Amino acid sequence: MRIRPLEKTDLSYIYDQENSRKIMALWFEEAYTSFDELQTLYDKHVLDQTERRFVVEEDSQFIGVVELMEIDSLHRNTEIQIIINSNYQGHGYAQEAMKAGLDYAFNVLNMHKVYLYVDVDNSPAIHIYKKIGFIEEGRLRKHFFAEGHYHDSLIMGIFKEEYSK
């Protein structure tokens, strides 16, 4: 498994993910993006230095996406997000991809802290994040709206020195 920068040729895979209500609900985002809109967003964000998007792949097969968002070079922190295609879940790709994203954040971007938001009911993801070393920092009550109702979210974080252990 490896990560590589998201390319315009990957947009068809992203289109499939972004048009799944179930997948986008995990990111607390609205589903159903047109392909034209997706291309426009790609063009708009490709040079944005506050974001990095990576494709997770195995043997040139698209597995998912890891994103570093809200990269703050002054305070040296960033949010990490991940989606693994449902066909590849349960095979350890999420943990490997998160570690690759963290390696990039800490060792290339020199971040001090990486944080994430996760639905309190997403126990498989929480388990993976804790296994990697993320610590629960708080609970945001009814913070995100998805699938017709509000969800509580955990905010979890990890510092470079905690990850390096």
Rank of each mutant, 00 (worst) to 15 (best):
L74K: 09
L74V: 13
L74S: 07
H75Y: 11
H75N: 15
H75A: 12
H75M: 10
H75I: 03
H75Q: 14
R76D: 03
R76H: 10
R76E: 10
R76I: 07
R76T: 11
R76V: 07
N77L: 02
N77Y: 14
N77E: 10
N77I: 03
N77D: 14
N77G: 03
N77F: 13
N77W: 15
N77Q: 13
T78P: 05
T78N: 02
T78Y: 10
T78W: 11
T78F: 12
T78I: 07
T78S: 14
E79Y: 08
E79L: 06
E79F: 03
E79R: 12
E79G: 05
I80M: 11
I80R: 07
I80E: 04
I80Y: 08
Q81R: 13
Q81T: 13
Q81A: 15
I82F: 08
I82A: 11
I82E: 07
I82V: 13
I82Q: 09
I82H: 04
I82D: 03
I83F: 02
I83G: 03
I83L: 12
I84V: 15
I84R: 07
I84F: 11
N85C: 06
N85D: 14
N85V: 01
N85I: 00
N85S: 11
N85G: 05
S86P: 05
S86D: 14
S86N: 05
N87S: 09
N87E: 10
N87L: 05
N87M: 01
Y88W: 15
Y88I: 00
Y88L: 01
Y88N: 01
Q89H: 09
Q89R: 15
Q89F: 01
Q89G: 02
G90S: 08
G90K: 10
G90Y: 03
G90A: 07
G90W: 04
G90R: 15
G90I: 00
H91C: 09
H91S: 08
H91V: 00
H91D: 01
H91G: 00
G92W: 12
G92H: 11
G92R: 14
Y93F: 15
Y93M: 11
Y93N: 04
Y93I: 04
Y93V: 05
Y93T: 01
A94E: 10
A94W: 04
A94D: 04
A94H: 06
A94R: 08
A94Q: 11
A94F: 08
A94V: 01
A94N: 06
Q95C: 12
Q95E: 14
Q95R: 14
E96V: 06
E96H: 07
E96Q: 14
E96L: 02
E96R: 13
A97C: 05
A97G: 03
A97V: 01
A97M: 02
A97S: 12
A97R: 06
M98D: 13
M98Y: 15
M98Q: 10
M98T: 14
K99H: 09
K99Y: 04
K99E: 12
A100V: 02
A100T: 01
A100E: 06
A100Y: 09
A100I: 00
A100S: 13
G101Q: 08
G101R: 04
G101P: 04
G101V: 03
L102C: 06
L102R: 02
L102Q: 07
L102F: 05
L102A: 09
L102H: 04
L102S: 09
L102W: 03
D103L: 08
D103G: 07
D103K: 09
D103M: 04
Y104V: 11
Y104W: 12
